[in-house]
Design a protein around this nucleic acid. Structure first.
Lengths: 165, 165
DNA sequence: ATGAGTGCAAAAAGTTTGCACCGCT
DNA sequence: AGCGGTGCAAACTTTTTGCACTCAT
């Protein structure tokens, strides 16, 4: 779960997606609806495999195939509803990009957890530098790596004499 | 070509690699030497395929196989001589990380060109935010996307009446 | 003799695509 | 009738790996 509160949004992601699809002469089908709802049911980061695991199970009545899920994810990205945030373990990781403010991520090298943080100074600096260099900036992706506080906790141990020196 | 000047470095990348390999009980073989030199022959960003294209050609006497090139790249990354900077068109893109100062990149959405820029404020902010959040920061990767000045140039055209309104 | 190193070809893993059929969000 | 949409399986891409042989930085 991210540490950033969602903005109030007038239209649901599903509705927004429908509008986008319409501009491409496409329809919000049953399958695409299932995928959008699965993706926006919570604010977790996700990858294609996770959605496939949820929707491509033979037991479930509302099955959606891998191909359709991949195609829907591509469409959602083009619609600006989701965006790629990282590439972890050979998988593209996405997050919601609709109704949430710009933010960046820490990625723990140990547990691969993504931790969101928000800092406007960085965006401002980028705007300035891009301007200076004649680059027409549209967005950025910042992954800071290291060890999260959880993984940094030493395995529980007794006090060490060295602690007192 | 980057816009950042190389620092003076005492030891060549090849020598540095040799030292690293030694700590792992490995040797700087003929093949690994060829790969390092190919990679450090210029300061361009590169991906595995480019190196393979140069070294895995049947016509050349100093051929190195794909497998060995991939293995060498992995070792070079662990040695801290190169680092991943981006993931473009399904390929991992690397750059030299030895003898060059920390910097970030703009990536042109049109021509995929990587443009380096340096800004210490960003690193400082990250250090501060990481500290506040109890994250043990080790590095970061920042890709700012948009259109480079080259691609932003409008195709040569006549003045448009609309320009004057 | 020993252990690291190499090349090859096959395997992985994630993602994309050609195709035939379906159905009207 | 038309066109977008879906599922399936095969194809594709990049990267990794098992294996047998080689070599000595």
């Amino acid at each position: 779960m991210g540490n950033l509160a969602p903005k109030d949004v007038a239209v649901s992601p599903e509705e927004k997606f429908k509008e986008f699809l319409a501009t491409r002469g496409k329809r919000l089908t049953q399958e695409r609806g299932i995928v959008v709802r699965a993706i926006f049911s919570d604010h977790e980061h996700f990858d294609a495999e996770e959605i496939i695991a949820r929707l491509d199970k033979p037991s479930d009545g509302n099955r959606v195939s891998r191909a359709t899920i991949y195609r829907a994810i591509t469409d959602l990205e083009e619609a600006g509803l989701i965006r790629r945030v990282a590439h972890i373990n050979d998988r593209e990781v996405y997050e919601h990009d609709y109704g949430y403010p710009q933010h960046d991520h820490f990625i723990c090298d140990k547990c691969n957890k993504l931790i969101e943080f928000r800092n406007d100074e960085i965006s401002d600096i980028l705007d300035r530098v891009a301007m200076e260099m004649g680059f027409r900036l549209s967005g950025h992706r910042l992954e800071a790596s290291g060890i999260c506080s959880e993984c940094a906790k030493p395995p529980t141990r007794r006090h060490n004499k060295l602690d007192m020196i």
